[in-house]
Amino acid sequence: MKYINVGKERIRFDYVGSEEYEHVLCCLQCGYEFRVLLNRPSFSCSLCGNLNSIKEVSSFKVIGCIEPHRVSQTA
């Protein structure tokens, strides 16, 4: 599984996670990447305005899931 830790976030690529986490989507119409919560009824690309309901995400590609980064504590 590919992932990257950035600050307090962990981005898991090519992965659709829980609706409670933000996801990185790519608009297939203009190529713009943006964050969105998948528990919303609809969303739109902030660059070109491409609008879709969450049930019709064919206009967007899921790049990855953004999860809180949990640092393991070692003594």
Rank of each mutant, 00 (worst) to 15 (best):
L37C: 08
R35T: 07
C27V: 11
S42K: 13
N39E: 10
Y32W: 12
L47W: 06
I54P: 03
N39Q: 08
G49E: 10
G31H: 08
C27Q: 11
S42T: 04
L47N: 15
S42V: 04
C48S: 07
L51P: 00
L37D: 05
F43S: 05
N52L: 05
C48D: 06
C30W: 10
Y32F: 15
L25Q: 10
V36R: 05
V36E: 11
H23G: 03
F43Q: 01
R40M: 08
G49L: 00
N50L: 06
L51W: 04
F43K: 02
L38S: 07
I54M: 07
S42W: 14
H23V: 04
L37H: 14
G31V: 04
S46I: 13
G31C: 01
Y32G: 00
R35A: 09
F34Y: 15
S42C: 08
C26R: 15
I54Y: 07
K55C: 02
I54Q: 03
G31W: 06
L25H: 05
L25K: 05
L47F: 12
L37G: 04
K55W: 14
R35D: 05
C45D: 08
C30M: 12
V24R: 03
C26W: 00
E33L: 11
F43E: 00
Q29W: 00
F43C: 04
N52Y: 04
C26Y: 00
L51F: 09
E33I: 08
E22P: 02
N39T: 05
G49A: 00
P41H: 03
N39W: 12
H23Q: 10
C48R: 01
P41C: 05
N50T: 14
K55E: 15
Y32S: 02
C27R: 06
Q29H: 12
L51I: 03
L25F: 10
L38K: 08
L37P: 12
V24W: 01
G49Y: 09
V24Y: 02
Y32R: 13
E33H: 11
S42N: 14
S53Y: 02
F43G: 01
V36Y: 02
S42L: 09
L38Q: 01
S53F: 08
F34M: 11
G31F: 02
N50K: 15
C26P: 00
H23L: 03
P41M: 06
N50P: 01
K55M: 10
S44K: 10
C45N: 03
C45M: 09
R40Q: 15
Y32L: 07
P41V: 06
C27T: 14
C26S: 09
N50W: 02
F34Q: 09
L38A: 00
C27S: 09
Q29K: 15
L51T: 06
G49Q: 05
Q29A: 13
Y32N: 14
S42F: 14
L37M: 11
